[in-house]
Design a protein around this nucleic acid. Structure first.
Length: 554
RNA sequence: GCCCCCAUCGUCUAGAGGCCUAGGACACCGGCUUUUCAAGCCGAGAACCGGGGUUCGAAUCCCCGUGGGGGCGCCA
């Protein structure tokens, strides 16, 4: 393998919220490319939109990346020789660079209002043409710009695009040529003096000596702009690779909108059935204005993740995971998510599918990235996670569970000892997610008072079977008198009892399960008894005999 | 409306002109196992978007359709 210490890749998110899977895949590919080449992985924060920056978003972003295992070599909190790594900290640099282009006649001021621009765009569409900004014959001076500012007009700086076709050499897609007639003079500096994304990206990629840029295909049409800017500055052009887009199963770009849609659909169904009204939903979502709720309901706007979460809980639906944080909360293993994401748009060429992060870094190559968009198949991810959990060592699983519990305040496993969690994990073999450990064994750890008896289960195993309550009483006695309380002894004693009574094991196991958990879901019954101990077992049997027995009589 | 990208089972993909009777994985379906829920085991079905070329030969190359996706911001 040839190592190239010069390879420098970056992931450059804007801090508008949690990291999306699409962003995670982009980060992963850049990380793998850098690691494969023995190069450097850089994190840069693109916070140039003052109106969209969300407080706390950067912290979430860093946490998500670290959770995934994508530690950056240079960037916020890591430092590095090419900083600052936040665009908001280098405004002077961008302004100076813009000034240089203006003075060289490569960029110019323009003063149009949004309304004027909108009218021009509309006119172009009506005439079935691409909108091209009408470049003035002679460029305004600095003094003209100041005068416009004083007059209250928005002053921006635009790049004078070269009047020639621009061919982007993309390592994944090949050569893509955009005709000069389709290129427009785009904005470099906004009226507030902040740089646009295009401008900051080009300056920063140069400042940070970026050699390879892997990014989503939605950026492909931005690339000619970036190339033109590099020409204007005399910067080298990095190697570009535009990754296929991750789509949801219905075939459109996967994004937070998918969550809005899931909740909206559920809300509309609930409204139709008369279960709730708009006022109630608005209140649950905690919308300050009713109009905000209405606009969301009509698919005109989106709600925050927190609002959707609340509505989801109230409507009884599970939101589709789209942000990395969601996957963590659902109990996915980060290494599994990375493995799965790596296969969306890349394949090793043989039939291997399961990779550790190290194996990925060793196998990854830019040549084997696909062109076609990929759908995000949750079923396959679930299966990968099942396999990942099954193959993980107990120590790894414990650590993953602790990490999961950090973001799951309501879990009954919070505050349990490592030993208990390790035990539960062992008994829960076969779960697909860490959260499923809760459905499988969570009821064993809630307060007795929180046990809710499942009506259908009670009916089937305790009432319809006329002898069941009696059996439960006899088993209780048996268990109370057992000399030792361990799996083998429990197993032997109960099986002997069952044989003697000519019963099936299920005739004892199912009533016991209901007594212990309220339903028919639990790990293997003898291990379960051993796990929770005699005291709790007897207490719960008594509780069941009383409450279900009472119900049976009534 | 304009510009761009893409096209193999339902989904992710292998396939770089003959190794293809198109391989793997998930899902689905059938069976086995079973103290529940899972899991596990065994098995089956399932695809080269259409039409033209090029070639002795095309899933693979070219063209045209069609379909899907993305972009067209003083968002990134």
């Amino acid at each position: 393998m040839t190592t190239n210490a010069q390879v420098r890749c970056r992931f450059a998110p804007s801090p508008t919220g949690y990291l999306h899977v699409g962003g995670a895949r982009t980060a992963l590919f850049n990380y793998l490319l850098a690691k494969r080449a023995g190069g450097t992985f850089i994190l840069r924060i693109e916070d140039t939109d003052q109106t969209r920056n969300v407080r706390d978003a950067e912290r979430q972003l860093l946490e998500d990346l670290r959770w995934l295992g994508l530690q950056w070599d240079e960037g916020p909190e890591a430092g590095g020789a090419c900083g600052p790594y936040r665009q908001s900290e280098k405004l002077e640099r961008y302004r100076a660079q813009a000034r240089q282009l203006i003075d060289e006649g490569k960029a110019y001021y323009s003063f149009d209002t949004r309304e004027e621009l909108e009218a021009m765009r509309k006119a172009a569409e009506a005439a079935k043409r691409t909108f091209i900004y009408p470049r003035p014959k002679s460029f305004p001076s600095h003094a003209d710009a100041q005068k416009a500012r004083d007059a209250g007009r928005p002053v921006v700086v635009r790049l004078a695009m070269p009047e020639r076709d621009i061919t982007v050499s993309d390592t994944i897609l090949g050569e893509v040529t955009i005709r000069a007639a389709d290129l427009t003079d785009f904005v470099l500096l906004k009226p507030d003096g902040w740089p646009t994304y295009h401008f900051a990206v080009v300056v920063d990629d140069y400042d940070m000596k970026i050699t390879h840029v892997l990014r989503g295909q939605e950026h492909l049409m931005n690339t000619p702009n970036h190339v033109a800017l590099q020409w204007a500055f005399g910067y080298p052009t990095p190697v570009y690779g535009h990754l296929p887009i991750i789509l949801n199963m219905s075939g459109s770009k996967m994004g937070k909108r998918d969550k809005d849609k899931a909740v909206r659909d559920a809300a509309l169904a609930a409204l139709k059935s008369g279960k709730v009204d708009d006022n109630a939903l608005c209140q649950i979502a905690d919308c300050p204005e009713f109009d905000q709720y209405l606009s969301w309901k009509e698919a005109q706007s989106q709600l925050t993740s927190e609002q959707l979460q609340r509505l989801g809980v109230a409507l009884g639906i599970v939101l589709p995971e789209v942000q990395v944080h969601d996957f963590r909360q659902s109990g996915y293993l980060p290494e599994v998510l990375c493995n799965f994401l790596a296969l969306l748009g890349w394949s090793p060429g043989d039939s291997r599918e399961k990779f550790s992060m190290e194996e990925l870094a060793a196998a990854f190559s830019i040549e084997r990235i696909n062109k076609a968009n990929a759908r995000f198949d949750r079923d396959k991810l679930l299966n990968f996670n099942l396999d990942g959990i099954a193959k993980a060592t107990p120590e790894r699983l414990l650590a993953a569970m602790r990490s999961y519990l950090e973001v799951s305040p309501a879990s009954p496993f919070r505050g349990q000892s490592d030993e208990t969690i390790l035990n539960v994990l062992k008994l829960s073999a076969g779960v697909r997610t860490l959260r499923e450990v809760e459905t499988k064994a969570g009821a064993l750890f809630v307060d007795d008072a929180a046990i809710r008896y499942d009506a259908a289960a009670v009916e089937k195993f305790l009432i319809k079977d006329a002898g069941a309550m009696g059996v439960l009483r006899e088993v209780r006695k048996l268990l109370a008198e057992l000399p030792t309380w361990e799996t083998a002894a429990l197993d032997a004693a109960v099986r002997a009892f069952v044989d003697e009574k000519k019963l099936k094991l299920a005739a004892v196991a199912q009533p016991l399960r209901i007594a212990l958990t309220g339903g028919t879901i639990s790990p293997a019954i003898f291990e379960t008894l051993a796990l929770i101990g005699r005291e709790k077992t007897l207490r719960r049997i008594d509780r069941c005999l009383v409450s279900v027995g009472g119900a049976a009589i009534a």
